[in-house]
């Protein structure tokens, strides 16, 4: 059975989808079969990083939750992005996007959906596509989807920026994850400034939460310039951001 990795942050704008896409790509570069589910139904977006155009989704996660399709029918093989940058890469990435149709977003907000179906869908997606890792991109903050994802996760990655609001929100997420008995929790600090201070920042954050920091990612103009049009680490394998994510990968796979 594959490992279920949930990527979350208390606040929006932390780079959650970007980091999820990059972690997926790095895992796939190691030869793994990787799935991604965009459970951020209210504000989906990770499909953009894999150049999957919303007009080209026949089915999305919403359709599965409305029982219009099987979970695997909403999965798209986006592995070409790997081969495009690293021709020898042997892994695969399958993405289940959330719908980008306005009416479908509001419908699911209004009608809700069956939690059990989402839970079963994760398991079925892993089994049917024989995934080694399933990454869940979540909606920020505390909500039912996140609690469910955390409750069944093998690894919970919490992203935060060096920012007082993020620090306070992360304390809540860490407390909830402990109550939900998440087997492994990791923190990833994103958009950090002053590279000379990274070791001290990591130590400080670890001592505040009692949770390991898997990497400190520098604030990068290069990421901003890319503007979610590609997967950064595939283009810049030696960039400090990629190296920080590689260290997070070591923690996720368990060294």
């Amino acid at each position: 059975m594959g490992k279920l990795v949930v990527v979350h942050s208390f606040r929006g704008g932390t780079g959650k989808s970007n980091i999820t896409a990059n972690l997926a790509a790095l895992l796939a570069c190691r030869g793994n079969r990787v799935g991604i589910v965009d459970t951020d139904i209210q504000s989906p977006g990770i499909h953009a990083l894999f150049s999957l155009a919303p007009d080209h989704f026949k089915f999305a996660l919403n359709d599965y939750l409305w029982k219009r399709c099987r979970i695997e029918e909403a999965a798209y093989d986006v592995s070409d992005i790997l081969r495009g940058h690293q021709p020898g890469a042997s892994g695969s990435i399958y993405l289940i996007p959330a719908s980008m149709r306005t009416g479908e977003i509001t419908r699911i907000l209004q009608e809700g959906y069956d939690v059990g179906l989402l839970n079963n869908g994760f398991q079925q997606f892993m089994e049917t596509l024989e995934l080694d890792y399933l990454l869940i991109d979540t909606h920020p903050g505390v909500n039912e989807e996140t609690l469910l994802s955390a409750a069944i996760s093998d690894v919970l990655v919490i992203i935060l920026r060096p920012d007082r609001q993020d620090y306070q929100g992360t304390a809540i997420m860490v407390e909830l994850a402990r109550q939900l008995e998440v087997p492994k929790m990791l923190l990833l600090i994103n958009k950090a400034v002053n590279q000379k201070d990274f070791a001290a920042l990591k130590q400080r954050v670890e001592s505040i939460y009692g949770v390991g920091v898997a990497g400190v990612i520098p604030l990068s103009e290069d990421v901003a310039v890319l503007g979610s049009t590609d997967v950064f680490c595939l283009l810049h394998p030696d960039h400090p951001m990629t190296l920080a994510l590689q260290s997070a990968i070591m923690e996720i796979v368990g060294k």
């Binding site: 306005t102 009416g103 509001t106 907000l109 209004q110 009608e111 069956d114 939690v115 059990g116 989807e145």
Partner: peptide, 18 residues
């Protein structure tokens, strides 16, 4: 697990418009 529903308190008319 049961069903999940958010923002239940919005009036139906608003959902129809959306």
């Amino acid at each position: 697990p049961g069903s999940m529903r958010t923002a239940r308190t919005l009036p139906d008319g608003l959902w129809r418009k959306l």
